[in-house]
Nucleic acid binder design. Structure first.
Lengths: 219, 219
DNA sequence: TTTATTTTTTAGGTTTGTCTAAATTTTTAT
DNA sequence: ATAAAAATTTAGACAAACCTAAAAAATAAA
């Protein structure tokens, strides 16, 4: 089955919203896609006819098994291209999203298979988000936020929850990126702020809010 | 100025037809694009309004300077992606056209600049066709067909005129591709056929028709 | 130079994906 | 429980890009 760019964008957005709330609402999807609720309703009908959606009028909706598989395939393409843009073309990791949004709609199986091979089967994209395999299986990367990690354990940054420019600016300032090794040296129970130590850098203190958004895995 | 995928496809096809005939006709363009003459007329009006076209009703049309620049930019993107697909992803050179047709419509200047850099500024695509630079300038590759090349001169294959699967099959059989070094050992005036010698391979004879379609440059 | 043929354009539809405005259903608040 | 508010859907339009069929213009043939 092949889908239009619009259909794919809807499927992908529903998928992302489902990660947070089990069943998705018309308004939230309209907001996510920067479109009108009426347009969403129109598309929902089409996706339901194409059997990608469980949808009951006025009651919300969610992708069914087929829809999920399609979504994972789009996510796979998106993240592989992001990885390509950063590691091969030298883009900054916060500048690749828009371009990957275009590249992800090229659906040649052969292309994606060869791209994956060329990139050496990466597990995560440059933001640390896992890349689903051809069958839609998502590699499990055991990760916790810095807010939860025990003191003095060596950990490596695997992903960032909030990918806003403001957050990325802050991370850049502290020279923290995916793959950075660090250690929590102290945790202040007063406000949940955390002192961290990155190799060869002075220790610094980050707020609980920031700590909750930096995910790491144990070395 | 930004253009839709459809507009870009029209612009590109007009550009290609112009290489052969100075002024293009509605029917030939409809044929090239596998669409109807009426649809072509519709689009011509739009492109004329956008000031890309010199067009007089019933009299044919051609790209103006602006249109030409846009076309060259699309050709540039197409050929860079073809080069990428073959040299980096390992596609066969005759399997990349359709995918490059999709990739060429992603218009981020930054993307194409970085891709060009990553590929190390190639001069020609895998078929030997020249890649226009950012300003639309086409590198001149001094080339002649094997039918014209003098006997015993060492030459390198630079491009292939006829890119049909049949031709590519034949070239594959003789292990001839872009970059292959060879020498004309004999030319038979009876039928214009040519004996050629590729390094480490037995000499072989190709017809005049084939010889005319293989372009080479002198080493 | 008329007539016939071919080419091109116009007129009027269709589909996809969007929109606004109005109607309907659900949820919230009194 | 009922009224007010919010969310959702329907109805009806619109633009882009395509189509068919008919009309108009250009070209070729008698």
């Amino acid at each position: 089955m092949n889908f239009s760019i619009s259909e794919e964008n809807y499927i992908k957005s529903i998928y992302h919203l489902q990660q947070q709330t089990d069943t998705v609402t018309t308004n939230s999807l309209a907001n996510e896609l920067q479109t009108r609720p009426a347009s969403v309703t129109d598309m929902l009908k089409k996706l339901q006819v194409k059997n990608l959606l469980e949808y009951e009028k006025y009651k919300g909706f969610r992708l069914n098994a087929t829809g999920n598989k399609v979504a994972l395939n789009i996510v796979r393409r998106h993240r592989l291209w992001e990885y390509f843009l950063v590691t091969k073309l030298g883009f900054e990791w916060d500048k690749v999203h828009a371009i990957a949004e275009e590249l992800e709609h090229i659906s040649s199986k052969d292309l994606i298979q060869k791209l994956d091979n060329f990139l050496n089967y990466p597990q995560t994209d440059p933001h640390g988000d896992p890349i689903p395999d051809v069958h839609g299986k998502i590699p499990v990367i055991r990760q916790v936020s810095i807010a939860e990690v025990p003191v003095k354990k060596n950990v490596t940054v695997s992903s960032v929850g909030n990918q806003s420019p403001e957050m990325l600016e802050l991370l850049d300032h502290y020279h923290i990126g995916i793959g950075t090794s660090l250690k929590v040296t102290m945790r202040f129970s007063f406000d949940g702020s955390v002192e961290i130590k990155v190799l060869k850098q002075a220790a610094c203190i980050i707020s609980e809010q920031v700590a909750k958004n930096i995910f790491v895995y144990h070395d």
